[in-house]
Computed example of a mutant assay.
Amino acid sequence: MDLELEGKRALVTGSSSGIGAAIARLLAAEGAKVMFHGRDEAKTRAVAQSIVDAGGEADFVMGALNEEADCARVASAVIERFGGVDILVNNAGGMAASSRPDTTAESFNRPWLETPWDDWRWTYEQNVGSSVRLIQALAPGMIERGWGRIINISSASATQTEPDLADYQPAKAAITNMTSGLAKSLAGTGVTVNTVTPGTIATEGVRAGFVEWANQLGWTELDWPTIERRFTHEVIPQPIKHFGRPEDIARMVAFIASPQASYMTGSNYRVDGGQCRSIN
Rank of each mutant, 00 (worst) to 15 (best):
R133D: 01
N109C: 02
L134Q: 10
N66A: 12
D102I: 06
N90F: 05
V85T: 15
V132K: 08
C71N: 07
N90M: 09
S99L: 03
A75L: 01
P140H: 14
W112A: 15
T123D: 13
M95Y: 02
I143N: 02
R149F: 04
A139R: 11
A97E: 09
I87E: 08
T104I: 10
V78F: 01
P116N: 12
T123G: 11
I151T: 07
E144T: 04
R121I: 00
L134Y: 07
V85A: 15
F82H: 08
E68I: 13
V128K: 10
N90S: 11
G129H: 06
D86S: 05
S107A: 10
S155N: 04
G146V: 12
N66P: 07
V85W: 00
W112Q: 08
G148C: 03
I135V: 03
L65A: 07
I87V: 04
G148R: 09
T123A: 13
N127S: 09
L138R: 11
F108D: 13
L138N: 10
Q126W: 01
V128S: 07
P140R: 13
G84I: 13
S131Q: 10
M142E: 13
A92M: 05
D102T: 14
I79D: 08
I153T: 05
A77Y: 07
A96G: 14
A139K: 10
A105W: 14
I151A: 13
A137N: 02
A92T: 13
F82D: 05
E144V: 01
S99E: 04
W117T: 03
T123I: 03
T123F: 06
G94A: 10
R145C: 00
I135R: 07
N152Q: 14
V74P: 06
L134W: 09
E67Q: 15
Q136E: 02
V78K: 00
P101L: 06
M142R: 11
T123Y: 13
R149Q: 14
Q136P: 03
I151C: 09
Q126M: 02
I151Y: 12
I143L: 00
S98Q: 14
E144H: 03
G83F: 03
N127P: 08
G141M: 05
R100C: 10
V128C: 12
L88G: 09
L88H: 12
W120R: 07
I79A: 15
I135C: 04
R133G: 04
E114V: 04
T103M: 15
V89S: 06
L65W: 02
A75Y: 00
F82V: 09
S99Q: 05
A137Q: 00
A97Q: 07
